[in-house]
Amino acid sequence: MKPKVFAMFVGPSVFLMLLFIAAPLISVLVNSFQVTQPIVEVVEVETCTPGFLTQTCVTEVKTVPILDDFGKIQTTTKWVGLQSYANVLELDRVGEAISSGAWGNILQIDFWKALRFTLTFTLITLPFVLGLGLAIAVVVNNATKAVKGPVIFVSLLPFIITPVIGALSIRWLFYGDGIVTVWLEALFMTDISVAANGWAVEFLMMFYRVWHVAPFAFVIFYAGLQTVNQDTLESAIIDGASRWDRLRYVIVPHLMPLIIFITLIHLMDAYRAFEEVVGFSSQSQRITLQWLTYDLLQPDDAGNRAISRASASAMLTMIGIVLILILPLRRTWRDHKGG
């Protein structure tokens, strides 16, 4: 292909990627080093509000922003270096916890609490997603033709359902007097409160993620299984390889590139976990890094939002994803060069 033709094909997508990926990223990066504050003044304000029958008027000292000639809030922006990162990481409290020997206290700090959960969540769900996906793929591959279609359809359902809806439906099974909780209570003759236990909520969140993502792994593996060399399989059978041996020495090595691919995608997605926190209202027990960023961005009733800290938190999440992807990416790179 001529360079000019190539440029014409690629140009639009490069442009869109710069506009929608690079530009926002740079603005978040810049924001994480800046703090923009309104210029405020302290004034006495008399506010009259309704009681049930008569009004009550109170005079309060309030801090209010100063408006400019166009009615916009006047702001100042200053560079603060790594201050916002320091505010998110709270390294002084980490140091305090370490020096006092109370290591557990580190997990009382939002960022570290979120990091701990996000990493556990990502790394524990990964093998289950791969294992379950592969298992379903092998089972479906061996199923008789008549049931294959319906089985594939049912296996894909969790993946099709909107994430928050899926999370909510599992929540309703367990929270409060959810149907499963009622069964368990009848079975063990005891009162069970799922949402009051951190570990139980953590387990449900992981269970949901595996349930939701395994079908994706299944589809990829199922496609991969169709390309396994039948001759190799037959010769393996002739050589006396058991079903398990065939899976281990023929099928899995053949699927290795796909396993790496799913691992990459899953690590990226799970590290950005967010729906689980919303769906299971787990804020009091478990939070994720992505939720932390969202929470900082949400305006409170008075309209304040912590944009600088949210930017720093977003950048830290991105750095985390890069770090976690380095290992599998290096392997793919080596394979790529070797192949």
């Binding site: 405020v40 309060e60 309030k62 009733d301 008075a302 309209g303 304040n304």
Partner: peptide, 19 residues
Amino acid sequence: PSTSQMGLMHTALGNVLPA
């Protein structure tokens, strides 16, 4: 008491007290 300070205080309370 609705003020800018109260907004921040409300958020801080809501995030920390569950612990």
